[in-house]
Design a protein around this nucleic acid. Structure first.
Lengths: 340, 340
DNA sequence: CTGAAAGCGCTAACAT
DNA sequence: ATGTTAGCGCTTTCAG
C-alpha cells in the first residue's frame, strides 16, 4: 500500500479562506484579543469546515508548555503500574495533558534513553513509579529542569512521593479479624527484604495481642500453600485466621485449607492484600482483602504534577494514602458483624 | 514547595559558548554539512558540558515528523493491551519513537478527544487496538492525514490489521491432544457472540473426529467449573480431555475436576487458551495452553507503522499471526510424547 | 477591531 | 569550513 495523505490544514489556510490575517484567525479561534463577533464566528466555522487542528508543536514551542508528561516505570507494564497510570490519565485528561508511559524493565540504559527522549520532547513533568517502595530511583531524576513526582516509590525529601499506607492497611485487616472474634491469627507474607512486607508484618505484630506468628516467603501461590500446610502440621492450638501479605498467597492458602478439609471462613478466615481482582474475586470463596487504592494514588500524583507544572506550591515528602478493606466471603461478609 | 527550575539550554547557548554560529553548532552536533573536525568536537564537548538537549518540538516543527505515535485502546488498560503495547514500544524504541497510550474505556467521547489530542500533537501514526476482534473501530480513524494500523481489531481492507490466528491456535491444541492419544475431547468456551470463540469452536469441531461437543458460556472461572460439573454428570462415555476457550475457564475446569476426584492429566487432560501467566502457571497442575503471542503482534504493528511513516509500501488486509502452544503439566509435559 | 512583524528553537539552502 | 537567511506554524506585542 502507498497512500497519499493530504497536507494538514494550517492557520494560514483558515485565514486565507476567511479573508483575514493569520493573527486575527488566531485571536478568533482562541477568543483572545479583540475580534468582531461576526468575524470570530466566520473564522470558527471555516476552521471547522476545512478540518483545521492547531499544531500543538508550534504552540508548545512558543508557550514552553507541551501539555505532556512522562511516566517512567521501572517495571515491565504490570499490574501495579497500570491502575496507577489509569489514575494519572484520569486526573490529567480534563486538562488536555497526555501521558507518555515508559517501561524500563529495570534496565538502566533503557531508563536513561527514555528519560532523554522525554526531556527532548519537552514534557512538563515526570512521574516516576516502581513496583516496590524500597528501590532507589535513578539519580538522573535529581536535577531536572522540570518537576518530578514519585508514586509507589520514594524520592528525595524535597519532592512529593505518594505511597500506600501499608501499616494502616495491615491494621485494617487485623482489626477486622479481631472485631469478628478471631483471635489466633497468623501472618503469611512475602520476602522479608521487601519493605512493604516488613511494615505489614510489624503492624500485624503490634496489633495482635497474643503470640503473633509471621512467615516470610515469597509472593507466590505456592508459598501460601506450603506455608499453610506447615502451620497446620505443627502441634498446639491451631489458628482460626490467616492474614496474607498478598492475594496470590491467599489463594494458595485457601487451596491448602480446602485440601485440609477446613472450611473458609467457618473454620479459618482468610484476608488478603492487593485486591487484585483476577484473583480476589475468583477464589472460592471470594477474598476479603486490602485494596491499596492504586488508581487514587495515580490520581493524586497526576494532580500533584499538574500543580507543579503550574508553579503552585504543594506539600512535599512522603504522603501515605489510606488503603481500604474490601469485604468478601472469605471473612466477614455475612453481614452479621459490623463492617469497617 | 516552590522550586526554581533552570532555563533549558538551547542551541544558541552552545553556539555562543563555542564561539561559532548556530548553524555550525547544528551541523556539528548532527554531523551534517561540512564542519572542521576540531570545531565539531569542541561543539560536542561544550554541548555535553552545559547539558544541552535538542528541543524535539522545534525539530519536529521543521521536519514534520514528531517521532511519536499514538496507541488507542478501546479497553481499560488490560491484560491484552499491555503485552501488545510492550511489543509496540520494543519495535519503536530503537528508532527513537515514543508511544502515547490512550485508554478510552469504551467511551466514544474519550476516544474522540484522545484522537484529537494525538492529531494536534502531530503523531506520525496511530495504532488502534481492541479487546475483541469483532468490534467496529471508530469511524474517525477512516480519513486521517496519517497512517493507521489495527491490532487485535479489524480495520478496513486498505489498512493493515494484525490478529492472532485463532483457528491455527485451536488446531494446535486439538492436534496436541489427539497426538497424545486423547480422543473424547470436549470444548468449553466463552460467549457465542465473540468471533474468537466461534472461530475456535468451529476449528475444534472440524479437527475432532467424533461427536464434538461445544459449551458456550462466559469467560469466567465459574463457568468452567459449572460446565465441567454438567459434562461429567451426563450419562454415557465421559471425556478424557477438555479444551478450554480461556485460561480462566480452564482454571475453573481444573478445580471442578479436583472436586470430582479426577486427576489432571491422568484422568482428564486440560488445555487452555491465552497463556495468561498469572493463571496458567498457578493452576495445579500448571496449564498447557495456547499463547496468542500478543507481544509479537504488537511488535509487528510497530514495525508496520514505522514503515508507513517512512512511506514504505507494506502488505495490507488482515494478517493472521501464528499462536504457539505452551506445554505444561496439565497435558503432555511428561516428555514421553512428541511435542508440537 | 485588524494586520504587520517578531520570534519560539531548530534545520537547510545559500552565500562567503 | 563557516555564517547568513529564511521559515516550520503559531502567539503576541504593537501600530494602524
Amino acid at each position: 500500500m502507498r497512500k497519499i495523505f493530504h497536507r494538514r490544514r494550517t492557520l494560514r489556510d483558515v485565514a486565507l479562506a476567511a479573508g483575514v490575517s493569520i493573527s486575527t484567525a488566531s485571536n478568533a479561534l482562541n477568543e483572545t484579543g479583540r475580534v468582531n463577533i461576526e468575524t470570530r464566528d466566520k473564522v470558527k466555522r471555516i476552521a471547522q469546515e476545512i478540518g483545521f487542528l492547531p499544531n500543538a508543536l508550534a504552540r508548545s514551542l512558543l508557550s514552553k508548555r507541551s501539555f505532556t508528561i512522562g511516566m517512567i516505570t521501572n517495571d515491565t507494564y504490570g499490574r501495579l503500574t497500570l491502575p496507577m497510570a489509569a489514575g494519572v490519565s484520569e486526573a490529567l485528561v480534563d486538562h488536555g495533558i497526555s501521558v507518555f508511559l515508559c517501561a524500563t524493565n529495570n534496565d538502566q540504559r533503557l531508563a536513561t534513553s527514555h528519560l532523554q527522549a522525554l526531556l527532548e520532547k519537552q514534557v512538563d513533568g515526570i512521574i516516576f513509579t516502581a513496583t516496590r517502595l524500597d528501590l532507589e530511583p535513578p539519580v538522573e531524576l535529581l536535577n531536572l529542569p522540570i518537576p518530578v513526582v514519585y508514586v509507589f516509590a520514594q524520592g528525595p525529601n524535597q519532592n512529593v512521593s505518594f505511597v500506600p499506607d501499608d501499616a494502616q492497611g495491615a491494621r485494617l485487616a487485623v482489626t477486622h479479624l479481631k472485631r469478628l472474634g478471631y483471635s489466633r491469627i497468623v501472618h503469611i507474607t512475602g520476602p522479608q527484604d521487601y519493605l512493604a512486607a516488613r511494615i505489614r508484618a510489624e503492624t500485624y505484630r503490634e496489633s495482635c495481642d497474643r503470640s503473633p506468628e509471621v512467615f516470610f516467603g515469597d509472593w507466590s501461590e505456592d508459598w501460601g500453600y506450603v506455608a499453610t500446610e506447615k502451620v497446620f502440621s505443627q502441634g498446639g492450638k491451631q489458628p482460626d485466621a490467616i492474614f496474607c501479605g498478598s492475594d496470590e498467597i491467599a489463594r494458595g492458602v485457601i487451596d491448602a485449607l480446602r485440601d485440609l478439609d477446613l472450611s473458609v471462613p467457618n473454620d479459618v478466615a482468610v484476608v488478603g492484600f492487593d485486591n487484585w481482582e483476577v484473583i480476589s474475586r475468583q477464589t472460592r470463596p471470594p477474598l476479603t482483602t486490602v485494596d491499596m487504592e492504586l488508581k487514587e494514588l495515580g490520581r493524586q500524583a497526576g494532580l500533584a504534577i499538574l500543580a507543579l507544572t503550574r508553579d503552585e506550591a504543594i506539600d512535599t515528602g512522603i504522603q501515605r494514602l489510606s488503603c481500604s478493606l474490601v469485604v468478601r466471603e472469605s471473612c466477614g461478609a455475612e453481614g452479621s458483624h459490623p463492617q469497617v
